[in-house]
Amino acid sequence: MAVQLDKALTREKIAKRAEREIESGYYVNLGIGIPTMVANFIQEQKEIVLQSENGLLGIGRSPYEDEVDPDLINAGKETVTAAPGASYCSSAESFAMIRGEHLDLAILGGMEVAENGDLANWMIPGKMIKGMGGAMDIVHGAKKIVIIMDHVNKHGAPKILKSCTLPLTGKGVVDRIITDRAVIDVTDEGLVLVEVAEGWTVDEIKESTESDLKVSESLLNTSY
């Protein structure tokens, strides 16, 4: 069994791997939480535009203290700046961009993903419902939907399942799953293991995944 990395390092590892999904020229929406962290690792040579669903196309870096503008936040309600080339729009236009599939990529967090691409990431029955925010729109709104999450939950149980047990955010919407252990694609033939993270074996990935996993012919071992 691989050595368990601490939480912060695990998150960083997932975020860094997720960054590789972003190609120069992409318009990208990053969800709240670990997905937001992906922005910290974007390689300088890549020219990309980050979309924030509250009406900012072109999220910039965090402001210095004297640059803080309370009217300028991201969807996680953090103060931000606007990047060169940025534009502002209304929430309706922002979601028109999303719904109209003008974004190349969205990277979101997940609680459960099923082998048919179903995603659950917004509510746990019996716990207080906070709301789905923009997640239900965004899962239908990018050419590629990548979910980043821990491979198993805090009890060690799989989060990649035959079918989701939690209420769905979207049906058949996920294209790729990136965890601390593996990269898995959702295909018409089921889930395909395409990359294994450093310290893990194919068997260990299969054991910690409830769904059946096909192993890609071009599997990359120790890829991140």
Binding site: S90, F95, R99, G133, G134, M136, D137, V139, G170
Partner: peptide
């Protein structure tokens, strides 16, 4: 859903009684 909310309000103001959207199917 946030985008649906924005569009429901936009539609309301634009005299559109209802519309179809993919957000929320199967949820």
């Amino acid at each position: 859903p946030q985008g649906t909310l924005a569009e429901r309000i936009r539609a309301g103001g634009a005299g559109i009684p209802a519309f179809y959207t993919p957000a929320g199917v199967g949820t």
